[in-house]
Design a protein around this nucleic acid. Structure first.
Lengths: 126, 126
DNA sequence: TATTTAATGCGACTTTATTGCATTAATATG
DNA sequence: CATATTAATGCAATAAAGTCGCATTAAATA
């Protein structure tokens, strides 16, 4: 199934690129100039996520947030379960912290997968 | 507002204690012998969570999971935003990893809050 | 035992997200 | 360039998770 370039996708991707924070459906829709259907928005976002173009994070509110992928290796599409995301509290930027984070568990514990969101200040904002 | 001891709460708490994994609403309801209303189950669970008796985790599926609190300091009720949870892939147990985890970020980055789920094997199962 | 009010059950409702299906339009093909 | 193919879209319906209002029930207390 080959992907096609469409107006909707371009605009949504542009918004995600311009935005420096992860957006949920509502936030994204609010930024749209064109009217794009809810379902389409979700489909575009999930397609991006599947393609490794953006990452999808589930917030504490249970909603899906999407952010343009900064540090992600686009070849490896196994996004969801092997890294943390970092969100800067000042500039709002969301990044992947793929293997840059050192997780040390209590002794006897071994890590298989981890994911979650770390909040703080990035190097530009701290 | 003083808490009252009720049948429903006892049964739900018992199930959470017996279960060694975090349960969502459906899973919990399936284990009930008595019929307890959806709304009640949610209210009981959130009450437990507010009281620091159980912890609430948002899964990757966006659903709320609840697990009896093993390592949590019941005095400090600020559960939600300052620790990771660890889930053992074998025995399914969910624990708080309050300050036992060493988070080291890329240089220049500072941590304010973190939460998420780490999967692996606990000391008993690894 | 009577009183107070926390907890429950029921139903309606909200929000988030997905799916089916007919239509539109992006790409490929001749 | 015209046409065929089918990915992408819009619309409506639906699903699923969770919350809320309100009348009722039943713990705790006096």
């Amino acid at each position: 199934m080959k992907r096609r370039k469409t107006q909707s996708q371009e605009e949504i991707l542009e918004i995600l690129k311009d935005s420096n924070s992860a957006l949920n459906h509502d936030m994204l829709q609010a930024k749209l100039t064109t009217k794009i259907d809810r379902a389409t928005i979700y489909r575009v976002l999930n397609r991006f996520s599947d393609d490794g173009l953006v990452h999808k994070v589930i917030g504490d509110d249970g909603k899906q947030y999407f952010a343009f992928c900064l540090n992600c290796d686009k070849e490896k599409k196994q996004h969801s379960h092997n890294h943390f995301h970092f969100k800067c509290l000042k500039c709002g930027k969301v990044e992947c912290l793929k293997n840059e984070i050192d997780v040390s568990l209590p002794k006897g514990y071994t890590t298989e997968a981890f994911n979650g969101l770390i909040s703080g200040y990035c190097s530009n904002c701290s």
